[in-house]
Design a binder for these strands. Structure first.
Length: 339
DNA sequence: GACCCGTGGAC
DNA sequence: TGTCCAAGGGT
């Protein structure tokens, strides 16, 4: 059964592979590990459509991992703005510098796993796709496809071990990279979360979930928790057509990103923090923004001044705010003020 | 294992 | 409109 599955899937992939910017075309030399790695990191929890323009921008600006390694971190952070999960950008720079230092990407799953930002999935994916190593690549697509193919009814995340065992079983010894990408293409276009296209599926005759009648109900997932709503304040301080931006510290929420000064809402603040300047503040409105595990109502207040706010920051020309690389929350706040 | 960490699109 | 979700990793 395992050999049949991988064979049918690879045949399907040869005919129906998606044409994606980070994939080698037929006739291309071996895939570029830099582009494979960069795309895999960008694609973590992020849709193909969202990644495409960022991938083009990054590879144009930094064509090699050495170029990226030589770039100031804040430039990379600004280029990542809007893509989310900013620890990826922080780790991207660290990993690029480690790779440049050692003279190239490691080629084994185990060694790749040592690089910051490469977990079990990404290390396996890069090993398989860039270096043609046999590796068991398990992402959300594979979890869905395998759950249905083997009719695994135990809910996630408890079923992960069983899923991995089954994925291991059907991973071929050769073309592991194509197999991994085939599983992802199948999951993205045929074995979709909602309304799977079973009639078009190359694995329909092997699929136990389909045989048992309810593939769309798999995988079963644990119920989600409700998101609390937090309140916060942010301050727009303007002087000579420039706005005061700070850079958020550490590894926490939006860490490393440029931002408006705020009252500490991300640390659990309740919106009662003191403003960074005295004087008359003018309400500019409220931004609503939903993060992974809470929603935020951010009140934006503005003031024009001739003073210098305390602490570290920079005056950023308002007509060049696009280049500051504000994360979406603060880009929304800026839009509100400038509307 | 649980929780933290963004965002925009589909329905 | 709210909900779900997408090529996860770090702690």
């Amino acid at each position: 059964m395992a050999a049949i599955v991988s064979e049918q899937l690879l045949d399907w992939y040869d005919a129906h592979a998606r044409d994606l910017p980070w994939r080698a075309r037929p006739g291309d030399p071996a895939p570029d590990p830099y582009r494979v790695w960069l795309s895999e990191v960008m694609l973590q929890q992020t849709t193909v459509a969202a990644v495409k323009p960022y991938f083009e921008a990054f590879t144009s600006r930094w064509p090699t991992v050495e170029d990226l390694a030589a770039s100031p971190e804040e430039d990379v952070m600004a280029a990542w703005a809007g893509l989310g999960y900013y620890s990826r950008a922080r780790n991207l720079v660290k990993a690029a510098r480690a790779v440049a230092e050692r003279g190239g990407f490691p080629e084994t799953e185990k060694a790749l796993r040592e690089l910051p930002g490469l977990g079990a999935y990404t290390a396996a994916a890069v090993a398989a796709i860039a270096f043609d190593r046999r590796a068991v690549v398990v992402d959300a697509n594979v979890e869905r496809v395998v759950s249905r193919l083997f009719a695994i009814r135990e809910p996630l995340p408890g079923s992960r071990k069983a899923i991995r065992t089954c994925a291991e079983e059907i991973t071929p010894d050769s073309r592991a990279g194509d197999f991994a990408q085939a599983m992802m293409d199948l999951g993205a276009t045929i074995c979709t979360s909602r309304d799977p296209k079973c009639l078009l599926c190359p694995l329909q005759t092997a699929c136990r979930g389909r045989a048992e009648g309810d593939p769309a109900l798999l995988p079963v997932k644990a119920p989600k928790k409700a998101k609390p709503v937090r309140q916060g304040k942010a301050w727009w301080i303007e002087r000579d057509s420039a706005v005061w931006l700070i850079r958020r510290e550490g590894k926490g929420m939006l860490g490393g990103m440029r931002a408006l000064p705020d009252d500490g809402w991300s640390a659990g603040g309740d919106g009662s923090g003191a403003p960074p300047l005295d004087g008359e503040w003018q309400g500019a409105g409220v931004v609503r923004h939903t993060f992974t595990h809470f929603a935020l109502e951010l009140s934006v207040e503005r003031q024009s001044t001739r003073e210098e706010p305390p602490g570290h920051g920079e005056w950023w020309p308002v007509d060049q705010l696009e280049e500051a690389g504000l994360p979406t929350l603060f880009a929304k706040a800026a839009r509100l003020v400038l509307a």
